[in-house]
Amino acid sequence: MTAAKANPARRPNGARAIADLVGKAMTPACKKRGFASVDIIASWADIVGERYGTRVQPDRLIWPRQPELTDPDRPPQPATLVVHTDGATALLLSHDSAQVIERINTFYGWAAIGRIKILQRPVLVKQPEPSKSLRALTRSEEQRLEERLEGVENDRLRQALKKLGAQVIARGAGEPA
């Protein structure tokens, strides 16, 4: 059996996907902070939404001590999520904490978080990269695109397809089929 068949993450030339290496390297650091995996940190912006995705940073989970459970099917007590944010965002987050907790618990699939503890500390706000402007289409490219869209009767659909086709052509991903 070859190395590629034995380990699907390994590629035939012996290279490994960077995501596999980073995830394994970060997992011990996350476990020290109470996170079972890097999933919540990696998906933070998607979980909490645009408002808090860049302005609030998860720090750690504090799990309560679990007494000897008589019922092993009973889930553990929910944890406290400690986050960092600035003063203004802390005020907003304190009002929206129930909704944020619900989103996080939906991500986990069970009531993992019971409350959020907010620490007011500066958070490095990551600025999104500006999108590159696309080149203008040549007259012949525009004509070919219009010819391909002649059979589309719905105006909104035609405009959407025209916009998509122009972006595909401008990025050099090929001509419309």
Rank of each mutant, 00 (worst) to 15 (best):
residue 168 V to Y: 03
residue 138 T to R: 11
residue 72 P to N: 03
residue 63 W to M: 05
residue 67 P to Q: 13
residue 139 R to K: 13
residue 148 R to F: 10
residue 107 F to R: 01
residue 56 V to I: 08
residue 32 K to W: 05
residue 77 Q to V: 13
residue 128 P to A: 14
residue 131 S to K: 09
residue 123 V to P: 06
residue 157 L to A: 08
residue 136 A to K: 12
residue 111 A to G: 08
residue 55 R to Q: 10
residue 59 D to L: 15
residue 152 V to L: 02
residue 19 A to R: 14
residue 35 F to C: 06
residue 156 R to Y: 11
residue 127 Q to N: 08
residue 103 R to E: 02
residue 2 T to A: 07
residue 52 Y to I: 00
residue 107 F to E: 02
residue 170 A to Y: 04
residue 165 G to V: 09
residue 77 Q to P: 10
residue 52 Y to F: 15
residue 12 P to F: 05
residue 173 A to Q: 14
residue 8 P to F: 14
residue 92 L to D: 11
residue 141 E to G: 05
residue 161 L to H: 02
residue 116 I to V: 05
residue 16 R to E: 08
residue 58 P to L: 05
residue 66 Q to L: 10
residue 33 R to Q: 13
residue 60 R to C: 10
residue 57 Q to L: 08
residue 4 A to D: 11
residue 145 L to S: 02
residue 22 V to W: 03
residue 177 A to D: 12
residue 91 L to T: 14
residue 128 P to L: 13
residue 52 Y to P: 01
residue 171 R to L: 08
residue 160 A to W: 00
residue 154 N to T: 07
residue 46 D to C: 03
residue 164 L to V: 10
residue 115 R to M: 10
residue 120 Q to G: 00
residue 22 V to T: 12
residue 170 A to G: 05
residue 112 A to M: 12
residue 27 T to M: 08
residue 23 G to E: 15
residue 66 Q to G: 02
residue 118 I to S: 04
residue 148 R to T: 05
residue 111 A to D: 11
residue 52 Y to D: 01
residue 116 I to C: 01
residue 74 R to E: 14
residue 45 A to F: 01
residue 82 V to C: 11
residue 88 A to P: 07
residue 149 L to H: 04
residue 104 I to N: 01
residue 124 L to Y: 09
residue 49 G to T: 08
residue 130 P to D: 10
residue 139 R to N: 07
residue 34 G to Y: 07
residue 108 Y to Q: 00
residue 35 F to M: 05
residue 92 L to I: 07
residue 108 Y to L: 02
residue 151 G to E: 11
residue 75 P to C: 06
residue 7 N to L: 12
residue 120 Q to R: 13
residue 146 E to T: 09
residue 137 L to A: 04
residue 53 G to N: 04
residue 80 T to G: 03
residue 139 R to Y: 07
residue 49 G to H: 04
residue 110 W to H: 13
residue 116 I to H: 04
residue 39 D to Y: 00
residue 143 Q to A: 15
residue 140 S to D: 12
residue 84 H to P: 03
residue 21 L to Q: 09
residue 121 R to S: 08
residue 155 D to C: 03
residue 128 P to N: 11
residue 142 E to A: 14
residue 168 V to S: 01
residue 39 D to K: 11
residue 72 P to Y: 04
residue 77 Q to F: 09
residue 148 R to M: 12
residue 173 A to Y: 14
residue 122 P to L: 09
